[in-house]
């Protein structure tokens, strides 16, 4: 048909170009770059510089005391600070904003009549959203790592259980933890993606993704829910700490992987079903 081919429509590369120059992309990157800088400055020159101290809600890991001991620990602490909320927010943003923002710009209908097949729109948007999320995560880790190296020297990963790991082992551990944290972002990302095909308000979709994690955190505090809490994504959010022990224990991370990937697949499946049958009124 005039040389039309569905395969030549909206490609991942093209979608990248379309999204990359958006202000939110720049803000997200600036945020994850600024964070380690601020922390380095705080640790080096802050009022309590040199003192360990500080405590975390979980109370189990004294990461503040350990973070200034080398690039691996510093990068790890960066992940710890951001995984609970900032990374969730960014994942929800990159996935929740996908279809809803096109709808709000009114560009969605023009893409669909071009025609870009609906499945293709979703697949491309999903890939770009996930790649963006992973990219931001990697930037965070690498920036923290480099800054940590410059600021604190190249000491290996000190684990909360004592002992220090060599450079190779530390890097492996950091990679595993980064990978697992990426996996735990799948549930909020999936919820945001499903919401994105259902609303024309991008912020609403992003909010839905964040909301799920917030609600799960609240429910997780309620002991009375008992085993039902095993169904919450928060139950699997901290399993990466098992990669910090003297040996890596995979049990919880394996379950967490299955849970997050499984829930994500179901949510994305629902998003596809919904979007393919939806009347585009935006």
């Amino acid at each position: 048909m005039d040389g039309y081919s569905a395969r030549r429509t909206l490609s991942v590369r093209l979608e990248m170009i379309r999204q990359l120059r958006r202000r939110r992309t720049a803000v997200a990157l600036a945020l994850v770059l600024a964070l380690p800088i601020v922390v380095v400055l705080a640790v080096k020159f802050g009022p309590s510089a040199g003192g360990g101290g500080g405590g975390l809600a979980d109370g189990d890991l004294d990461v503040f005391g350990l973070m200034a001991t080398g690039p691996w620990n510093f990068a790890l602490s960066g992940l710890l600070f951001t995984s609970a909320f900032l990374l969730v927010l960014l994942a929800a943003m990159f996935l929740g904003d996908t279809v809803a923002s096109e709808a709000s710009w009114s560009t969605l209908r023009y893409l669909l009549v071009a025609p870009v097949p609906r499945r293709r729109v979703l697949v491309v948007k999903l890939i770009v959203g996930l790649v963006s999320t992973v990219a931001v995560l990697l930037v965070l880790v690498l920036a923290s790592f480099l800054l940590g190296w410059i600021a604190f020297g190249g000491e290996g990963l000190a684990t909360p259980l004592g002992g220090e790991l060599g450079a190779g082992e530390s890097t492996t551990r950091l990679a595993i933890i980064t990978g697992y944290i990426a996996v735990t972002l799948l549930v909020p990302a999936g919820v945001a993606f499903l919401a994105s095909v259902s609303t024309d308000v991008p912020l609403g979709a992003v909010g839905a993704g964040v909301l799920v994690v917030v609600v799960a955190n609240i429910l997780d505090i309620i002991d009375a829910l008992g085993p039902l809490r095993q169904l919450l994504p928060t139950n699997y959010a901290s399993a990466w700490s098992d990669a910090l022990g003297p040996t890596i224990v995979w049990g919880d991370m394996a379950v967490g992987l299955a849970y997050n990937v499984g829930v994500f697949a179901v949510l994305v499946g629902l998003a596809f079903l919904r979007f393919e049958r939806k009347d585009i009124l935006s």
Binding site: L194, A195, S198, T199, L231, G262
Partner: peptide, 28 residues
């Protein structure tokens, strides 16, 4: 109308998450 749809989608998402998790956890 929009918020109604968003809310339903969110509920749907949570329900789906529960369904998926139920496959993983043994029911009492």
């Amino acid at each position: 109308v929009r918020w109604g749809r968003a809310a339903r989608a969110t509920l749907g998402g949570i329900a789906a998450a529960l369904v998926a998790a139920a496959m993983l956890a043994a029911s009492p």
